[in-house]
Structures are given as C-alpha cells and as structure tokens.
C-alpha cells in the first residue's frame, strides 16, 4: 500500500481507487458522558439498595439472638421478642395459601384450558339438535342458552382477564378495606389471624391466577393434544398431563405471591388494627379465628412507630428476620424453577 503513485509495470497490483483518507478514531465527549450517566444512574440505584441493607443490618444485628426469636413481645425493648410475630406470620401464610391456592389454580385452569378453547364442536352439536326439532320446551331453551353463552364467552373471558390484571394493580390497602367490611363486618369474623389470612388470600389471588396461567401456557399444546388423541377427554388430558407439567411453574409463582403477602402491612392494619398483645399464637391454623392478628410486618411497624431509639434497633432486627425469610422463599422459588424448568 505504499506504492500507490509509482507507475505500475504490468505485474503490479491494480492501483487502488483514490478515496478520502479514513478518519482516525476520535474521542466523543458526549458519548462518554452519556455512557457514564446511565452507568451512574444504575449504580446509584444499586447503591441505595446497599445503603438500605447495610443500615438495617448495622442497626439490627446487635439485637438478633436466639432469645429474640423465641421471646414474647414486651414493653421493655431489651426483653422484647419476635416469637409471636413469627408464629403469627406462619399461621397467616397457612390460612392464605389454603384459600388462595385452590381457587387461584382452579380459576387459571378454567380460563386457560377451558374458556379459551374453541367450542365449535359443541356449538355444532347444539345447533344440530335444535335443527332436528327433537328437543322442545325446556330442553330447547337450555340448548339456546348454552349457544348464547358459547357466543358471548370469549367476550366474558376477555373481561375477566382485564379484571384480573386490574385487580393486581389495586393498592393493597384497598384489600384491607374489603377485608374489614366483608370478613369482619359482614361475616363477623373477629379481628384475628383468620380475618387477616383471608384478606391476604384475596390480595394474592390475582397474582396466583396470573402466574398459574403463565405456567399452564408454557406447556405445549402438543402434550394435551397427544393425550386427547389417545381418547382422553380434555379434563383428563389437563389433569393427567398438562397440570403435572405446569406444577413447578405454578409453585414458583405461588412462592413469589406468598413472599408478597408475608411483607404486607397495610391491609393487616386496616383489618385488625395494631394491637399490643403478649399472646403467643398457636401454630394450629384451625385456631386462627381466635388468635389476635400478629405478624412480622405488624410488629416491625409497632416498634418503628415507638419514639424510643431502643425500639428502632429491635425493629431493624425484625426486618432482618423478615428479609431473611423472603430470601429463603425466593431462593426456594429459584431452585424450584431451575430444577424443574423444562424447555419445550
């Protein structure tokens, strides 16, 4: 490339076309600036998280002890323990999952596997039956009603869809008002772990439905169709093939929904108030209706709200326990997902 201008004797390579020289790499300050801006903003966000975690750890680590986990609450911060709150949260979660899981999964199964499926066959059968004129009176009305339902079903399902995603965005404190009015007010349940657990169940219901639907959707249709081709009905195919395949995904979603519920404070305050109690709740969920509404976040709130600085330390210790619980739950979800996740 050095002999551009030399007159070339025949065996020389062809002279290159002349072009402007290439620009040398140059610094672009605005580029660098922008890059450091977005890096910096990301770093600030992470730094805030680290600040949060370290400040809680520093404040609360000294109060963490075995006694803290096993002692009852006390008006003396030095003696106050987290045991009642811990037990309360465990019972709350049992109640919550007992109500939310079956309903949420059943709703997801219906919406994903039945309501969304085409009903052309049923529709044709009903039409034919009506056309033959063999069905009359009540039978015909029933067949027409079913036809009408099949026709509007897609729209209804869409509305239910919109409704569920809207529910997931309703502020949690609103669920507290619902629980207060319905479970405490109308049903007359005392302000107890049962009332709190029911309220949290309603709160996480849309989350479980959404997660379960996603898990069901991830199972390929071919599995279901394969089973149905062998003569299984849709329900048999779903129960025997689709549901087991989707179960790890559903459980992962459930754990994540629980980790949302276990940290919820506001709805519990609305349902049960903030009571100072030295009771130690029984771990038997059947007693939940009689146990005062105690839970980790409520205890943390109660302590944080106290003016004395010594309560702040045990509040921080309570937060550490709560965050550790969340960490364990999230790790369980991750392990479950990684162990059972299949790529279809």
């Amino acid at each position: 490339m050095s002999t551009l201008e030399t007159p070339a004797p025949p065996p020389q390579p062809p002279a290159a076309a002349t072009v402007r020289p290439l620009a040398k790499k140059r610094a672009r300050p605005s580029e660098q600036l922008f890059k450091w801006l977005v890096v910096g903003l990301t770093a600030i966000t992470m730094a805030m998280l680290i600040w949060l975690l370290t400040s809680v750890l520093i404040r609360g680590a000294g109060s963490i002890s075995w006694a803290f986990l096993t002692d009852k609450p006390s008006s003396n911060p030095a003696k106050a323990g987290f045991n009642s709150a811990l037990r309360g949260s465990i019972v709350l979660m049992m109640v919550t999952i007992f109500f939310a899981w079956p309903i949420g999964v059943a709703a997801a199964l219906y919406l994903e596997k039945f309501a969304a499926q085409s009903a052309t066959l049923t529709e044709r059968r009903l039409r034919e039956r009506l056309a033959t004129g063999r069905v009359t009176g009540l039978g015909a009305t029933w067949a027409r009603t079913r036809l009408w339902w099949l026709r509007i079903r897609p729209r209804v399902v869409h509305l239910v869809d919109v409704n569920i995603s809207n529910l997931a965005a309703v502020p949690s404190i609103i669920y507290g008002l619902l629980g207060l009015a319905i479970f405490v007010g109308v049903l007359g349940i005392s302000k107890s772990l049962l009332a709190g657990g029911l309220t949290l169940a309603v709160l996480i219901l849309p989350i479980i439905i959404i997660a379960a639907r996603e898990a069901l959707r991830a199972v390929p249709m071919s599995i279901e169709q394969g089973a149905m081709a062998l003569g299984a009905t849709r329900w048999q195919a779903v129960r025997r093939q689709v549901f087991p395949a989707a179960l790890p995904g559903i459980l992962t979603g459930t754990i994540l929904a629980m980790s949302r519920a276990i940290g919820e404070t506001a709805p519990l305050i609305v349902v049960g108030g903030v009571v100072y109690s030295t009771a130690v709740p029984s771990l038997n969920p059947l007693d939940a209706g009689n146990e005062a509404l105690l839970a980790m976040p409520l205890q943390i709130y109660f302590w944080t709200d106290q003016p004395q600085a010594s309560f702040q330390a045990i509040a921080a210790a309570g937060i550490i326990v709560l965050l550790a619980t969340l960490l364990v739950m999230n790790l369980a979800a991750i392990i479950l997902r990684n162990r059972y996740s299949k790529r279809w």
């Binding site: 072009v19 402007r20 020289p21 290439l22 620009a23 790499k25 140059r26």
Partner: peptide
C-alpha cells in the same frame, strides 16, 4: 480490508465515521 489504501479494520479507524461513508 483496504479501503483505498488504508486498512479499515485497523483499530485507530473510527467505525462510526466509517459507517457514514
């Protein structure tokens, strides 16, 4: 890759400017 007589793959060539040409 010589463009004219310069190697455009060279690390001191500005790729952004190059793509404009």
């Amino acid at each position: 890759v010589l463009f004219g007589d310069e190697d455009l793959l060279s690390s001191d060539v500005d790729p952004v400017d190059l793509r404009g040409r």
